[in-house]
Design a protein around this nucleic acid. Structure first.
Lengths: 359, 359
DNA sequence: CTGAAAGCGCTTACAG
DNA sequence: CTGAAAGCGCTTACAG
C-alpha cells in the first residue's frame, strides 16, 4: 500500500515544479526559505509536494551546500568492540551533547577492511573526532589530505593539530603514590591490552603514559624504591577478563598486597575474583582502578580510582571540531586533569604476610 | 605546514585530469576501476593525484551512485541519553556486527528540534533502523515518503512494514509466574518511565507489553488471584533512580515480599538499596530483573531475570535492512524469544511477615 | 515575487 | 585503452 519505496522512483524537485507550474527555484524556496514566496505560491507548492510525496534529497543538498551536518568518529576498532567498551559509550555522551546542541548527527566510522586509512576518504562528514591515533601515523596525513577539520583525542600533544589530552601520567602517578604511602611494597599493575585486530599502538597512548606515571611514583620514592616489588600483568579490558586475571593474581602463595588495575572494568573483575576466593578487600588486598566510571561507586567495596573526565573529553573534542568547521580558530589544545578518588577498596597492608601466621 | 585544510580549496578530479593530461573519466577509473587503464596512465594519474593531495569527494560519489554505504539509527531521544542506556549500547553491538560484515558506517540520528519527524529527511543513509516507534505514528509515513527501506524494532507487528519484535509479554508473564509459584502474594512492579523530552509512548511498546504479561500471569492464577497484592512504581531507568525507588519500596513497614524490576539496571539499584538497608536478598525480599544484561551475573546475589536477546535484535534488524537495501525480499517479520533465567535473587518468601515476631 | 542558468564533484553508459 | 557528454538532484547568485 505504501508504494513510495518501490515502483516508480522518488519525485524530484523538477516533478514538483512541473506539477505546480513553477520553477525548481521556487520549489527550493518553499522548503528552505518560504518567506521569499507569496503565500499562495508557497502553499500550492507544498501541497503538490505533499501529494507527490516529495522530499529534497539530502545528499544532493549536501553536495551543493558543502556541508553534511554530521560529525564523524574515527574508530580504531569495529563498532561492536567500541560499543562493548563503557569508556566509548561515555565518550560518546560528551560528543553527543555537542551534536545535540549544534544540530549534528554522529557517524561512527570503523576501519574499512581493517584499515582506518581506507575508511577516511569515504565518510560524508564535516569533520572527524579521532581516537586512538598517534600523530605521526599515516592516518593523520590522510586526514589532512581529506581536507576536513579533525581533532586528535588521547594522542600526543602536537603543535600543528588540535588535540584533547588527559594527564594520564600524573593520574597514574598519584594512585601509585597513594598505594606506596599506604605502605604497599608488593604491587601488581593490571594493564589492559588492545583488542584483537587492533590497529593502535598500545605502548604509546594512554597505556604508555599510565605506565610512565607508575614509574614516576617509584622514582619519587627515592632509595626505598628498591624495596618495591612491581609486577605487571595484562588482560583485555572486560570484566570477565579482569576476573580471570584477578584469580591468577590473587590465588597464589605469593600474592601482592595491592593490585592497581589500569581501568575500572578490570578492577571490577579483580573485586569479583577476590569475592570468589573469600579474600577481603581492602583487608587482605587493596584494589585500585582507573577512570572512575559511574559503576565504580556501586562496587563493593566502593572503588578507589583515578577519575578522568571522559565525558568532558568528548565534549571538548566535539566543541573544538565544531569551531574548526565553522571556520573559527584553528589549532586548539586542551589538557584535562585527573583526580585521585579514594574510597573503600584501598588500605594499609597487613603487617604480617597473609600466608603466614595470620593477622 | 599541512596547508591542505586551509587556503586553496581541495583539488577536484578536473585538476588531476588537467595536470595529468587525461580526462576526468580516466581519473575516476584510476580510483574505481584501475584495470581499465594502462599501467602507465594509471600510475601517472595516481602519482599526480598524490602530489596534489586529491581524494574523490564522498558526497559527490554518493549522489551519483545513489548510495551512501551507511545505515541510520533513528533514535527517540538525543545521543547522550541513548549512550547512557546500556540497552542501546548492546543493541548497537548487534547492528555494528552487520555494519562490519557488510562494510557500512553507522549514523546516529537523534530527533531534530525535539522531533524525529524533522530528522528523517536530512540523514544521508541507505536505510533506517527505527527504535521506539509505533506503526501508526506520523514518523512511519515520513519514512515511507523518504523512500529508503526501514525496519521497526520493538514496535507492534504490522503486515506492511518489516519489524523485529521480542515476546515481552510472555517474558514478563514467565517471571511473574515464577514469583507467584514461589508463593509471593505481595509484589511490587518497578516500571521504567521514559526519559525527559521523550517522544515515545511508554504505555505502548515494550513497557506496555511487559505490564500486560504481568496481568496474564495473574489471570492464569485463577480465583487465588484476588489474594495477590500488586503495586506499581515508576522510575527512570538508571541505577541511581532504581536505588532511590528501592529505598522507598523497601524501607517501609509494609514492604512487598518481591520486587519485579522491569529492567536490570533498575533491579541493580534495588539490590543496592537492600544492601544499604541491611535487608537480605532473597531472604527478606526477592528481586527480579528484566533484560539479562552482562552486568546481571556480576550482581550479588546473582540476578534472577528475563533474558531478551538484545544483541540479536540489533543484528536481525540490520540484516533485514541490508537485504531491503540490496533489493531482495521486502517485508520481513521476526519475533525473538525471551527466557526466564533463575539465579540467586529470588526465593520462597518467609512465612511470617518480616515486621512481625521474626523468622 | 519569480525564473533561467550555472554549478556542486563525481560516475557511467556510449562511442571510438 | 581513452574521452566527450550527460546526468545525479539540488541550491544560489543574478536578473528581472
Amino acid at each position: 500500500m505504501s508504494g513510495s519505496t518501490d515502483g516508480a522512483k522518488r519525485p524530484t524537485s523538477r516533478d514538483v515544479a512541473t506539477a505546480a507550474g513553477v520553477s525548481r527555484t521556487a520549489v527550493s524556496f518553499a522548503f528552505n526559505d518560504p518567506g521569499r514566496l507569496s503565500a499562495a505560491t508557497r502553499d500550492r507548492i507544498l501541497e503538490v509536494a505533499a501529494r507527490l510525496g516529495y522530499r529534497p534529497d539530502p545528499v544532493a543538498r549536501m553536495l551543493v551546500q558543502g556541508r553534511t551536518n554530521s560529525l564523524g568518529i574515527l574508530l580504531p576498532q569495529d563498532i561492536p568492540q567500541a560499543m562493548e567498551n563503557p569508556y566509548y559509550a561515555q565518550f560518546l555522551v560528551g560528543v553527543g551533547q555537542v551534536c545535540h546542541q549544534e544540530g549534528f548527527t554522529l557517524l561512527l566510522v570503523p576501519p574499512l577492511r581493517n584499515s582506518m586509512l581506507d575508511a577516511i576518504p569515504y565518510a560524508a562528514v564535516d569533520g572527524f573526532v579521532v581516537t586512538g591515533l598517534e600523530r605521526d601515523r599515516g592516518e593523520v596525513a590522510e586526514l589532512e589530505r581529506r581536507g576536513v577539520p579533525f581533532v586528535l583525542v588521547d594522542s600526543e600533544s602536537d603543535e600543528d593539530v588540535p588535540t584533547v589530552e588527559v594527564d594520564d601520567q600524573a593520574g597514574a602517578a598519584a594512585m601509585m603514590t597513594h598505594l606506596l604511602e599506604l605502605g604497599h611494597r608488593d604491587i601488581t599493575v593490571l594493564a589492559f591490552e588492545a583488542g584483537p585486530d587492533s590497529v593502535i599502538d598500545a605502548a604509546r597512548g594512554p597505556l604508555g603514559r599510565r605506565m610512565a606515571g607508575v614509574d614516576d611514583a617509584l622514582d619519587g620514592l627515592g632509595p626505598v624504591a628498591s624495596d618495591v616489588r612491581l609486577r605487571v600483568v595484562e588482560a583485555r579490558a572486560t570484566r570477565a577478563e579482569g576476573y580471570k586475571a584477578g584469580l591468577d593474581i590473587l590465588d597464589s602463595d605469593d600474592r601482592p598486597t595491592a593490585v592497581f588495575a589500569l581501568s575500572d572494568i578490570l578492577a571490577a573483575g579483580v573485586l569479583d575474583a577476590a569475592y570468589e576466593l573469600g579474600i577481603s578487600v581492602p583487608g587482605d588486598v587493596s584494589v585500585a582502578g582507573y577512570d572512575d566510571q559511574p559503576e565504580a561507586v556501586w562496587l563493593r567495596p566502593r572503588l578507589t580510582t583515578v577519575r578522568q573526565p571522559i565525558e568532558a573529553k568528548g565534549r571538548v573534542a566535539a566543541d573544538f571540531l565544531v569551531s574548526a568547521i565553522r571556520g573559527s580558530s584553528r589549532h586548539h589544545h586542551h589538557t584535562l586533569h585527573t583526580a585521585l578518588i579514594v574510597r573503600e577498596s584501598t588500605a594499609t597492608p597487613r603487617k604480617t604476610p597473609v600466608r603466614g601466621t595470620g593477622a
